[in-house]
Every structure is written in structure tokens, then in C-alpha cells.
Design a protein around this nucleic acid. Structure first.
Lengths: 111, 111
DNA sequence: AATCTATGTCGTATATTTACGTCATAGATT
DNA sequence: AATCTATGACGTAAATATACGACATAGATT
């Protein structure tokens, strides 16, 4: 395998990259914003909202679920999704630490 | 083109996704952390630090430069890179707004 | 019981990303 | 002037992501 060297990096770096990857598509950002606005909503409502086919949206939902930032709960024929606020808070924290470390030691000037 | 539907989303969603994409590889996270620690350093030092070939690292550097989060300055034979703290602050701000919106309206429970 | 419906899975085509060797070049060293 | 060196650009192969139609299925409706 000439590829997939991501596991050669530190766990910390992999975690940030993995979270970022889950947020790296506007459809997934839109899903999170939509869930934040509606608080709770069924799968069909989400795909109706987005300019993508139902199956593509379903795929994006699975990715967000894999990260843990959303939860899905079956309710009869529908599946009901919502944000997991605990995970949102954790991600916010991880990113803030990352950015604060980047801001901690300002260079006098670049070179 | 059956692909590339990213432009069908809101500017706000595209910006977040674009930033996230730039952070979505551990090598690029590592580069940012390394620049934060060293404050200023030359291209060769960065590629020596990472478990990737020099050209691959160069490619990652170009991506971060395209986002604007790092700057490169030619200094003789070397190229000197550093973080653009203004951009780091902006990105931190964008993400915090995004997460805070997601946390603003907590559902009583999921479904 | 037969049918309908909302959803996820599978297969697949295309696009993009990742990774690296080779090459070109600007500038340093001899 | 000739050579050396650090870097980016280019070409390309392999991996991964994106997008969607066809299909399967659990549960509702008739």
C-alpha cells in the first residue's frame, strides 16, 4: 500500500483530522445546522431540505453518526435524528485547544 | 457532471466545509502544530519532521497556504513558513459560532 | 393478508485526494 | 563560470469520497 499514512501521526492529530473530515462537506454542515434549528427531525425532512438525492443524504447522515455528533432513533417508519450535544461540546473544546495552541507563541514577524 | 454539488449550498456552509477540509489530514494538523511550536521555520525542517516525502509535504503546505492559514516567504534558497494569526483567529471564530449555534437550542430529548 | 412507505444497503461511475518520483529553476557555493 | 541545493511544479498511480439508482426490509395502512 503506497497510501493511507494517516496512522503514522499522533493520536491527537488524527482525532482533529477525523473530526475535520466529517465537517468537510457542506451537506454535512447543513445537516448539523438544520438539526440545531429543528432540534429533532426525521430523515425524510432532512433529505427534502438538501439539494441531493435521498440516498446521498442518507450516506452523509451515516458519516455524522459514525463520528457520534448525531444520533438516530427509529420511530415506526421514520428515523428521528438529533445532535448529541455532549459530542458537540467535546469537538468545540478540542478545536479551541488546537487554535489556542496555535495562537500561544506569536512570532515577532514571519522570517 | 454528476458530481461537485458543493456550490449548491450556502456560502456559510461552504466556508466551514472548506476550512474543515484543509484541516482534514493529520499531516496538515501536524504542520500547524509544528509552526505554532517553532513559530517560524523553513520548508525542509517541516518535511524532516513528518513521515512523508518532501514533495508530499510541499503539497500539503500549498493547501494550507491556499486557505491562508500559513504564509511562505522566500529567503535565499530556503522558504520560510509561519502561521497567519489573523486567519487562525478568524477560523477559530467561525467554528465557535457554528458550535454555539448547534448548542443554542437543546432538545428535551432525542425523539 | 396485501400493499404501501420510509429508510438503509449495495453496486457502481466519476471526481478528488494522497503520495511520490522526476524534472525545472532560482539562488548559493566553489 | 560551473556546480550544488532547496524548493515548487508536473505527471501519475492508488485510495478515498461523492453521488445516485436499484434493491431489500421493517413497519404502517388498507
Amino acid at each position: 500500500m503506497t497510501h493511507a499514512k494517516t496512522q503514522l501521526f499522533e493520536a491527537n492529530q488524527q482525532e482533529i483530522a477525523q473530526i475535520a473530515k466529517a465537517l468537510a462537506h457542506p451537506a454535512r454542515v447543513a445537516i448539523i445546522q438544520f438539526l440545531a434549528k429543528k432540534q429533532v427531525c426525521i430523515s425524510g425532512d432532512i433529505s427534502n431540505e438538501l439539494p441531493l438525492s435521498r440516498t446521498t443524504v442518507s450516506q452523509h447522515l451515516q458519516e455524522l453518526k459514525a463520528l457520534g455528533i448525531i444520533q438516530g432513533e427509529v420511530s415506526g417508519l421514520n428515523v428521528c435524528y438529533c445532535l448529541d450535544l455532549k459530542v458537540v461540546k467535546h469537538i468545540k473544546h478540542i478545536f479551541n485547544i488546537f487554535f489556542d495552541e496555535a495562537l500561544a507563541n506569536p512570532p515577532a514577524q514571519c522570517c
